[in-house]
């Protein structure tokens, strides 16, 4: 069953055709990698799918058209994304970053803070407990009370992934999860992705680190100049001469 289907999506910035008629389908419970040279339109495609930019074409998530919806409504459907440059909320603590994420919190309605004090408090406790479990999973529990601004680059990446998981998504879109991350941490992140996928989560991952992405992906889409160049299993992609040409620049 497919969870996400993108049909002939386009986004032009003036004369620049950032995304120029892309079509991609992702099956539930798989990891789809997205590679391509700089300026291929990968991040713009992410922005279109998550609603941060509007273009033309059809985007269907879990059988529902989402291309006209604002980002927050798309997120509520169960799609969450991270950003290329990690956006940890640096003036909030690590724990607060996670507490922000869960959907449908009673206490997010101003009147409930007064009218449903008990249920707000109970829910808050449950959310706290769950958030701490996630922090433990990512092995950053000891940083719980630190301001996120004090974290290292790699820790911020972990925090952003942790925060994304805290909303309990069915599709996670990661924009360069391995960029600027040391090999040990990269292996750790790979491990987390594998574990979560086994739990039924679907992933769509932009990455430049070819060995890493071929290792965790079930399928890889290659983009070039706003178009989908090809799509296939990691082995097919590795041996495709076109891919070597545009992306690896004849290196292989």
């Amino acid at each position: 069953m497919e969870i996400l289907s993108v049909k002939n999506v386009k986004k032009h910035f003036g004369g620049v055709k950032a995304v120029d008629g892309c079509s991609i389908r992702i099956e539930t419970g798989t990891v789809m990698g997205l590679i391509g040279p700089n300026g291929a339109g990968k991040t713009t495609l992410f922005n279109l799918i998550s609603g941060f930019e509007k273009g033309s074409g059809e985007i269907t998530f879990k059988g529902m058209r989402t291309d006209k919806l604002p980002p927050f409504k798309i997120a509520r459907c169960g799609m969450v994304r991270t950003f290329q440059i990690p956006r940890a909320l640096s003036k909030m603590t690590v724990l607060e970053n996670l507490l922000l994420a869960p959907k449908a919190q009673h206490g997010e309605r101003i009147w409930n803070v007064w009218l449903r004090r008990k249920s707000v408090q109970m829910q808050e406790n449950t959310i706290k407990e769950k958030s701490r479990e996630i922090l433990e999973f990512f092995e950053i529990s000891h940083l719980e009370d630190e301001y996120a601004g004090a974290l290292s680059g790699g820790q911020k990446k972990l925090l952003e992934m942790a925060r994304a998981i805290a909303i309990d998504p069915s599709l996670m879109m990661l924009d360069e999860p391995f960029a600027g991350v040391n090999p040990t941490l990269a292996r750790k992140i790979t491990g987390y992705i594998d574990e979560l996928r086994e739990g039924g989560m679907t992933f769509f991952i932009i990455e430049h680190d070819i060995p890493a992405i071929t290792k965790i992906s079930d399928k890889i889409t290659v983009m070039s100049e706003g178009k989908v160049l090809t799509e296939g299993t990691p082995d097919e992609i590795r041996s495709n001469p076109d891919v070597l040409n545009v992306y690896l620049g004849g290196e292989g």
């Binding site: 604002p70 969450v80 003036k91 909030m92 959907k103």
Partner: peptide, 15 residues
Amino acid sequence: KSIREDESVPSALGK
């Protein structure tokens, strides 16, 4: 507070 800092984050989290 999250809006004060970077409103794309709460947006991406469904707020």
